[in-house]
C-alpha cells in the first residue's frame, strides 16, 4: 500500500514540477507599471523631498535662475544671514506660513517679489502637475526647515485642478509641454520665460541679447541650434554669460512648438 501511496505522491509532485519547470524555462517577462509621479495619501516626507529634488533640478529648471542669485534669490544657500529657503520662507510675508508662501510663489509669482528682483518668474503651476508642485515645496522646506507637506495637500490640489486626468497609460509621463502644447509663439515665449533675460519688442530684460532684430543676425537654422544647444554659439559681448541660458528648452518643447518659435524669431528682422 505504501508503494502505491508513494507512486501517487511521486506522480502528483512530478507533474507539478514539470509544469513549474517549463514555465520557468521560458523567458520571464513582468508587466510594467507606469512610472508616473503618483503620490498617494500615505506618501512620506522623504519621498516628497526626493521627488521634489528631481523636479527642481530637472523638469522644473529652477536652478537656471535660482541657482545663481543674480536674477533670482539663490534658494539653496544662505541669504544675508537668514539661512537657506527652508529657514527664511516663513518670514517673507506676514501672516503666511512657509508652505503657503512657497505655494503662492509658484502659483502666483508676481504677488510678492523679493526686493531687488524683477517679477520675471513664470507661473509654475501651469507647467507642473500638482504632485510636482508639492514635491518641490517639500524639497524647498527641507532646505533648512521642516517639511510639513503631506499627501493631503497633493490630493486637494489635484481636485482643484480642472481636467486633472487619471494617469494616462503609455505616452510620456510627467511634465506638460509649455503652454499646454500651444504653438502660438507669444504664448511659448511667455511660458518659457524668455523675457526674463531677453528683450523682445520692447519687453523684457537686458541680461541677454535683445531679440527684437534677431532674424537679421541669425537665420532659422542658427536660432534653432542656439535654442537646442545654447553653448554652440555665443553672441559678441556676452561671452561672460555663456552657460547661463538653460539647455533644457529643447526637451521641454514639442517639435511643433520649437518650429513655431524659431520661425517667429527668424521673422524679427
Amino acid at each position: 500500500m505504501w508503494a502505491t501511496n508513494l507512486k501517487v505522491v511521486g506522480i502528483v509532485l512530478g507533474t507539478l514540477a514539470l509544469y513549474t519547470l517549463i514555465a520557468n524555462k521560458i523567458p520571464q517577462v513582468q508587466s510594467e507599471v507606469p512610472q508616473t509621479l503618483t503620490l498617494g495619501a500615505n506618501v512620506t516626507p522623504e519621498q516628497l523631498v526626493a521627488a521634489g529634488e528631481k523636479v527642481f533640478n530637472g523638469i522644473g529648471g529652477c536652478p537656471t535662475c535660482h541657482g545663481l542669485g543674480t536674477r533670482a534669490p539663490n534658494l539653496l544657500t544662505d541669504e544675508k544671514g537668514t539661512g537657506p529657503i527652508g529657514a527664511r520662507c516663513g518670514k517673507r510675508e506676514a501672516g503666511k506660513s512657509c508652505k503657503q508662501y512657497l505655494y503662492e510663489s509658484l502659483d502666483n509669482p508676481t504677488a510678492f517679489v523679493v526686493t531687488g528682483y524683477q517679477p520675471i518668474m513664470p507661473v509654475m503651476t501651469r507647467q507642473l502637475s500638482p504632485e510636482q508642485i508639492w514635491s518641490v515645496i517639500a524639497f524647498l522646506e527641507s532646505q533648512g526647515g521642516t517639511v510639513d507637506v503631506t499627501g493631503d495637500d497633493v490630493a486637494k490640489a489635484k481636485q482643484l485642478t480642472p481636467g486633472a486626468s487619471p494617469a494616462n497609460s503609455g505616452g510620456s509621463p510627467g511634465g506638460g509641454a509649455f503652454a499646454a502644447g500651444s504653438t502660438d509663439p507669444k504664448a511659448i515665449i511667455q511660458a518659457a520665460g524668455c523675457l526674463a533675460c531677453h528683450k523682445l519688442d520692447g519687453q523684457g530684460q537686458v541680461i541677454a541679447p535683445d531679440l527684437t532684430h534677431v532674424g537679421a543676425r541669425r537665420d532659422a537654422e542658427s536660432i534653432r541650434k542656439k535654442i537646442l544647444d545654447p553653448a554652440s554659439s555665443i553672441a559678441k559681448g556676452y561671452e561672460k554669460l555663456a552657460g547661463i541660458m538653460p539647455k533644457t528648452f529643447g526637451t521641454m518643447m514639442s517639435a511643433a512648438q520649437l518650429e513655431a518659435l524659431v520661425q517667429y524669431l527668424a521673422g524679427h528682422k
Partner: peptide, 21 residues
C-alpha cells in the same frame, strides 16, 4: 542568450503626439 521579445506589445489606449493627445 536566447531572448523573447513580444513583437506586438499591447498599445496604450492613447498617446501624446507632439503634445497632442
Amino acid at each position: 542568450p536566447p531572448n523573447l521579445r513580444s513583437i506586438h506589445p499591447a498599445p496604450p489606449a492613447e498617446i501624446t503626439f507632439r503634445g497632442r493627445s
